[in-house]
């Protein structure tokens, strides 16, 4: 089944929002999410493909409402819970 991320050729997303002089991250928590994901992949907790899969498994309405790094956070939380990395608690 096609997932919500598979948007090539879809209509309705409107004009681009181009931000001049955009910083790499808009908040410190975005940077921490980026680093957490990189560390968890490097540490073998999950693969990059499992991470992409976890992003794509988001409910479509939730995916579309979330910002880029909110999607990442959702995927990390999903995988950390599924892998029981922090135990069952």
């Amino acid at each position: 089944m096609s997932r919500v991320n598979d948007v090539g050729g879809q209509t309705g997303f409107g004009a681009l929002r181009i931000e001049a002089g955009e910083p790499p991250f808009h908040a410190d928590w975005e940077a921490r999410v980026y680093a957490l994901n990189m560390a968890l992949v490097r540490g073998g907790v999950y693969t990059l493909d499992e991470f992409r899969d976890a992003v794509e498994r988001m409910a479509p309405a939730e995916y579309l409402a979330a910002s880029y790094y909110e999607r990442w956070l959702h995927a990390i939380e999903t995988l950390v819970a599924e892998r029981k990395v922090l135990g069952d608690a």
Partner: peptide
């Protein structure tokens, strides 16, 4: 690091079409 517009649905959906 990539700009937000590159990661946006608007860019990803439209540029191939």
């Amino acid at each position: 690091p990539s700009p937000s517009w590159y990661k946006s649905e608007a860019y990803r959906s439209r540029v191939v079409r």
